[in-house]
Simulated scan of single mutants.
Amino acid sequence: MTAPALDYSAPFQHAIELIGKRWSGAVIRALMGGTCRFNHLLAGIPGISDRVLTERLRELENEGLVERLVDPGPPVRVSYRLTDLGQSLRPVLRTVDSWARRELNGVKPGDEAAV
Rank of each mutant, 00 (worst) to 15 (best):
His14Met: 15
Ala26Met: 06
Leu85Pro: 02
Asp50Cys: 07
Leu104Lys: 07
Glu103Arg: 10
Ser24Trp: 14
Leu104Glu: 05
Gly86Thr: 01
Gly25Glu: 02
Asp111Met: 14
Leu104Thr: 03
Ile19Thr: 12
Ala5Thr: 15
Thr2Phe: 11
Ser98Arg: 11
Leu18Trp: 08
Tyr80Phe: 13
Arg22Trp: 09
Pro46Gly: 03
Arg58Leu: 05
Val66Met: 02
Leu93Asp: 03
Gly20Ile: 06
Phe38Asp: 00
Asp71Ile: 00
Arg56Gly: 00
Gly20Asp: 00
Ile48His: 08
Pro46Ile: 00
Leu69Ala: 08
Ile45Met: 14
Val92Ser: 06
Ile28Gly: 00
Leu69Trp: 13
Val70Lys: 07
Glu112Pro: 07
Lys21Pro: 10
Ser79Ala: 14
Thr95Arg: 07
Leu104Asn: 04
Ile28Met: 05
Ile19Asn: 02
Gly25Pro: 02
Glu63Ala: 12
Lys108Trp: 08
Asn105Gln: 10
Trp99Asn: 13
Gly110His: 03
Pro109Ile: 10
Leu85Glu: 14
Thr83Tyr: 01
Val76Tyr: 01
Arg68Pro: 13
Gly73Phe: 02
Leu57Cys: 04
Leu89Ala: 00
Leu18Ala: 05
Gly86Leu: 00
Asp111Trp: 10
Leu18Thr: 07
Ala26Ile: 11
Glu103Val: 06
Lys21Gly: 14
Pro75Gln: 14
Leu65Ile: 02
Pro4Ile: 08
Phe38Met: 01
Gly106Ser: 05
Phe38Cys: 00
His40Met: 07
Glu103Asp: 15
Ser24Thr: 09
Gln87Tyr: 13
Leu85Asp: 11
Val92His: 05
Ala5Phe: 15
Leu18Gln: 10
Val78Tyr: 04
Ile48Thr: 11
Ser9Asp: 13
Gly86Lys: 01
Phe12His: 14
Arg81Ile: 07
Ser98Thr: 10
Leu104Gln: 04
His40Tyr: 11
Ala100Thr: 11
Gly44Met: 09
Arg51Gly: 07
Gly73Arg: 03
Val66Phe: 03
Pro109Leu: 03
Ala114Tyr: 15
Met1Ser: 08
Val92Cys: 14
Thr35Ala: 12
Ala3Phe: 09
Leu65Tyr: 05
Asp111Thr: 06
Ile19Pro: 01
Ala43Asp: 12
Pro74Gly: 10
Arg22His: 13
Val96Phe: 04
Asp84Arg: 15
Glu61Asp: 02
Gly86Pro: 04
Phe12Glu: 10
Glu112Asp: 11
Pro75Phe: 09
Val78Glu: 07
Trp99Leu: 08
Ile48Phe: 04
Val78Met: 06
